[in-house]
């Protein structure tokens, strides 16, 4: 997530292999720097690489009849995903993610953009104000929405109070509630992504465009929007990916009415106990994620996601 972090490049892998360096490598094994990186090597190999590799392996294994996994190769888990019922889940997931991303962009882009135009003092204040809800546990924030959405909750009271509605709306456990919850959870990512892009924008370029005859809107489209596009795209990636996996939002606000890939994985894992299938679902989700990031890089020409540290 850090812009500093280099993506694993093969070049790095090869540098150690020159013959002349080999001789010294025995001593180098015991120098301070090498010893200090041993823990992260061990931890990463054991608890990041190991699990991920196992996930891929597992996705090709057969499920045992009663409990556990058989060591037999099969494509079944992947072909299983193609069943209409699961395909529909993917479709629903993608649809919800697209909806969410669209709304998040509509709400978050102007926010990040306006924020970047504030004075330095206000920018800092605004950052702090954003930080508080952003760091608040998502459970607490979700709970707040339950209070608002539930029958005779805050929203009902307000609406009935001003006479817009007569009876409590059944808002909780609906699709809209899930969408609102998702937007709420993800909009800060969009804001930060757009903000970091818009912050770098040279406002003199906008003035130059106006000076050359552009209306405010033309200047925005041809200059500001075009130059903050990487931020917007980064925000899209940052909201789209998690919104396919945020099963607990769908769980709590949707009350089992909205099933996402995330819910499916959780269900297969915890209830159906079909681990190979859950692994296959995860692999597909990972691939979708990687494709999105790759697409983003290709379109924006930026190596790292904007707005991530």
């Amino acid at each position: 997530m850090n812009t500093e972090i280099r993506r694993g490049s093969p070049a790095v892998l090869m540098t150690g292999g020159e013959p002349r360096k080999r001789k010294a490598s025995f001593r180098r094994l015991f120098d301070a720097a090498t010893i200090s990186v041993v823990p992260i090597y061990v931890f990463t190999l054991l608890f990041v690489v190991g699990p991920l590799v196992y996930m891929v392996v597992l996705s090709f294994l057969k499920r045992a009849e009663t409990w556990g996994v058989l060591r037999e190769f099969t494509w079944a888990n992947y072909s299983n995903i193609l069943k209409p019922v699961y395909l529909k889940t993917f479709y629903e997931s993608l649809k919800l993610a697209s909806f969410t991303t669209l709304f998040v962009a509509l709400v978050g882009y102007p926010f990040g953009y306006f924020m970047a135009r504030l004075t330095a003092v206000w920018k800092r204040r605004m950052m702090l104000l954003l930080m508080i809800p952003f760091w608040t546990s998502s459970l607490i924030r979700l709970y707040g929405w339950i209070i608002i959405f539930r029958a005779n909750g805050t929203l009902d009271n307000i609406l009935m109070g001003i006479g817009l509605t007569k009876a409590p709306l059944k808002l909780l456990y609906t699709y809209s509630a899930v969408v609102v919850g998702m937007i709420y959870a993800l909009v800060p990512f969009m804001i930060f992504a757009v903000y970091s892009s818009a912050e770098k924008l040279d406002w003199q370029l906008v003035e130059a465009a106006r000076d050359l005859g552009a209306t405010p809107w033309q200047a925005f489209i041809t200059v500001s929007f075009r130059l903050t596009l990487p931020g917007l795209l980064s925000g899209v990636v940052l909201t789209f990916i998690p919104s396919m996996g945020l099963f607990f939002i769908a769980d709590i606000l949707g009350g089992n009415k909205v099933i996402l890939v995330g819910n499916l994985i959780q269900e297969q894992l915890m209830k159906a106990r079909n681990w190979p299938f859950a692994a296959a679902l995860s692999v597909v989700l990972m691939i979708l994620t990687s494709i999105m990031i790759a697409l983003y890089r290709k379109v924006s020409g930026v190596k790292d996601l904007e707005g991530l540290v």
Binding site: D202, Q204, L205, E207, A208, A209, R210, D211, L212, G213, A214, T215, P216, Q218, A219, T222, V223, R226, L227
Partner: peptide, 29 residues
Amino acid sequence: EPNKRNVNTVFQNYALFPHMNVEANIAYS
């Protein structure tokens, strides 16, 4: 508005649009 005035500016740091080539910059107006 600035776009309605027959006045143009050469900005201090030039303010060339970084996402347009020379031709597109000049052709902008």
